[in-house]
Design a binder for these strands. Structure first.
Lengths: 297, 297
DNA sequence: GAATTTCTCTGACTAAGATCAGAGAAATGG
DNA sequence: CCATTTCTCTGATCTTAGTCAGAGAAATTC
């Protein structure tokens, strides 16, 4: 194993140790306010606006009985009230009472205090460095939390991604972008086995997509490559591309082709860096200036 | 409240959220191997060489009964054996069996896997950035974990600090350093109410010291300012100085004086930056080149 | 040599966090 | 309209983590 790798792993382990020690304080001394952390988390998650209980359960990933019991306890303490959901009378909603709002605000304050306790002992320049380094770590760790999944193009998340993609093309192309003038990649064309749409997610939120149209005996087409602006610079494009190539290989594809517009400079750079070489125009996509091709090994 | 401060606090809260989410995996999926984390931590802490039980308890900060019970459980699982300490027959030692060693190695491997899962999805340059930023965060957070306490100068930790201090002076002064030729600051002179010795600790390990000798009706003397090489650059000197000044104020001191050697350039810089101004020699310390004074407000 | 302290262990107890199997009510699909 | 599913709640039960009060043995202090 090469030494640099070993050192990197060591640094991360050491970092984890320091951090669980330091941030461990969060749950115990700060968030838990003479109250079980479970209840504190729940109280926080209910939010100022209130929540549906099922949504709450989903967000925290807890058992229905468990949540119910905790809500009963919070209700006893006068912090929340529950009522029936207006739309669905099986479901229930939970709201914070005035006391609950105050308690939640207090939790927020404690979370602030914890952050302040990080900053307090440092000098101004150290503070700036700490915050910058934390931002960097957070960003890069976020990258390692992104997951990829093939998804039906008609789900709301999938449609949202495609819309974002169109909106971006429309903003960046000199002449705007009208999908109906462009070569199609409709839902049925991106649904297995005809094709595949891959969605990248960070904390369950979609942050990117990419798609393939398969053509038996002919190259597959790469379409709809998009990364949310907030998630750029994390190497997500590269990973989306690799995942799509995996999919293509699994489907028996030999060659992937794509066309793109000269306004999309990062994308062009991404394709070049990842083994796509520019070829003659192989279709008459009106918005395209560059055509690329890659043979999968 | 100023906006920069608010932003810094926000960044740290966001960082904490991301991290508890990401590193939370540590305890659960990785370290806990179908075994309570308490036991896993204990197994890890016992180490390859074995440990005295009391040392173990001290390091993990756990109740004696609790540790005893967990050891019994690990013993039942055939992972550890205990025997009487050779030196002190009240105390007991615990060793890993072969199975225990294997289990501990597995924990190490899992901890590595977690670190690897951070690095894996990243490109080389992103890896380097992540590791550097983590190092920085760890360093600066360490600074905020340092605690200060007035301590008896005869405790082992206190003596260790003073010895380190002497060793460093001896290495850095052109002509070496012999404490017996220097103005005294013996244990009784640094024990309240005659004086005070402050020890800085990081994870219970001493990482610095500083002392005061009080003289009723006359300036107090600042002595024994030292920061461990590994803990330099964290602003510990500044904090030690501030803590000592607090102590002095509490003891009714108006003026603090000190002398120092020209070889100790960071120290001189520290004093200057913190309101000490150079004055005429007020004593005949043979190793001193500079004399400083500060009036406490 | 007696009194005190140190060290480990046991028993009794508690709180937190959680799971599982239904029950009852409402909504949905056919 | 009937069967099925969804949603919440209750009761029973479990594990983990941890505290507290001694007891017994050895070591240390006076």
């Amino acid at each position: 194993m090469d030494t640099q790798w070993v050192q990197q792993v060591q640094q991360i382990r050491s970092f984890n140790r320091t951090l669980t020690e330091r941030v461990g304080a969060l749950d115990d001394r700060f968030l838990g306010r003479a109250r079980p952390i479970g209840e504190a988390r729940l109280l926080w998650e209910i939010g100022v606006e209130g929540s549906e209980i099922r949504a709450l359960r989903g967000r925290l990933g807890l058992d229905s009985g468990y949540v119910s019991r905790m809500l009963r306890s919070l209700e006893h303490q006068g912090l929340v009230v529950t009522d029936v959901s207006p739309g669905d009378r099986r479901a229930r909603r939970v709201h914070l009472t005035e006391a609950g709002q105050a308690e939640r605000a207090e939790l927020g304050r404690r979370s602030n205090d914890l952050a302040v306790s990080f900053l307090e002992p440092l000098s101004d320049s150290q503070r700036a460095k700490l915050v910058a380094a934390m931002g960097e770590v957070e960003r890069l760790l976020s990258a390692s939390m992104v997951s990829f999944a093939v998804e039906d193009p008609t789900t709301p998340d999938a449609r949202w991604c495609i819309e974002q993609y169109f909106a971006e093309l429309n903003a960046r192309f000199e002449a705007g972008f009208d999908p109906s003038l462009s070569i199609s990649a409709d839902a049925h064309e991106l649904t297995p086995p005809a094709g595949a749409l891959l969605i990248a997610r960070l904390r369950r939120q979609p942050v990117g997509c990419g798609a393939l149209k398969f053509h038996t005996g002919a190259p597959a087409e790469l379409k709809r490559m998009w990364v949310a602006p907030a998630a750029r610079g994390l190497g997500l494009g590269r990973r989306l591309l690799h995942e799509l190539e995996q999919q293509a290989r699994a489907a028996g594809v030999d060659v992937i082709r794509l066309e793109t517009n000269r306004a999309l400079r990062e994308a062009i750079e991404l394709y070049r860096r990842n083994g796509y070489r520019e070829v003659e125009a192989f279709n008459n996509e009106p918005y395209a200036h560059h055509w690329f091709e890659k043979r999968l090994s």
